[in-house]
Design a binder for these strands. Structure first.
Lengths: 154, 154
DNA sequence: CTCGCTGCAAATGGTTTGCACGATG
DNA sequence: CATCGTGCAAACCATTTGCAGCGAG
């Protein structure tokens, strides 16, 4: 029989059977990754973050970056997209809401776009198809105004 | 005069620089891949196709499947999505042009969904942001009605 | 002091490429 | 007959994992 808990249904436990109630430890590396991520205006890959850390004089292993990124992803603190190579790109979630971006194929510029319509559509589609827990990935790519503008003095 | 274009190599050329104008040769393997793909109701990975070919008694190398899939992709004959692992999944494009799907995270069932709203939103967003040649990727994942059905006796 | 965290290196696993042979047009 | 297509194996490469030592709580 089920026990009426207010905890999340996904409540992992350690090998010893102890529930993971503790928040992740606050280590220098994790803070560094988070800070570095906040400093990046656009989506970045784990390896770019690694390079950033290096040039910032911070010693962090690539492994740790990946693991921290996973943590942030699970906690919903970052937006994640995949580039055309299937690489994961992360961006610290600026605002509270879930947002989408239009990315320039030429210069990489990314702009957050209003997506209420899509959110509604996704929710609506869920209902219509009988699906639950519907999550969506929306990626817009194009050529930004600046890059599509013909250049004369170049 | 030189055309100051910055567009990406959307126009495939052979190593020799010759534009790909010739139709690809019609080989037994390619036909097999296409036929196999047509026979799959849902999205399949290259490796699944490979297995299908094998159990159909058709000898086709994985390499050839990948290459054929790329060909079909370039020609716009297939829809491509990425699963959560970044794997590419292909589906022969039905007659109704560009469509989107909602995929069940539990059983893999994929359903084409109406996406006019999204199409309009994408086009609208392009205008609003000044982006041109906007392309979009929309992936809906969830749990289908069948899989989310409550199980009794717990 | 204990258990989580870290990082190196090695493993994974999907996808791509080099190369020599075979099939197509 | 000249190319393009094919397939094997090795290369690639982003990401994950094993393992032993270190640090946070």
């Amino acid at each position: 029989m089920s026990t009426p808990q207010r905890d999340q249904p996904t409540d992992p436990v350690t090998r010893s059977g102890r529930p993971v109630r503790d928040l992740p430890r606050s280590t220098r590396q994790r803070r560094a990754v988070v800070r570095l991520l906040h400093g990046c205006p656009d989506f970045v890959s784990a390896r770019v973050l690694y390079a950033e850390a290096e040039s910032a004089g911070i010693t962090v292993g690539l492994t740790t970056i990946y693991r921290t990124l996973h943590l942030l992803e699970s906690a919903g603190h970052v937006d994640v997209v995949r580039d055309s190579n299937g690489e994961r790109l992360y961006r610290s979630r600026a605002k509270e809401g879930h947002s989408h971006y239009v990315v320039c194929r030429s210069c990489g510029l990314s702009l957050a776009v209003e997506s209420e319509q899509v959110e509604r559509w996704a929710a609506d589609t869920a209902t219509r198809t009988g699906f639950t827990e519907v999550d969506h990935t929306v990626e817009l790519t194009g050529v930004c105004a600046d890059c599509s503008r013909p250049r004369h003095g170049d």
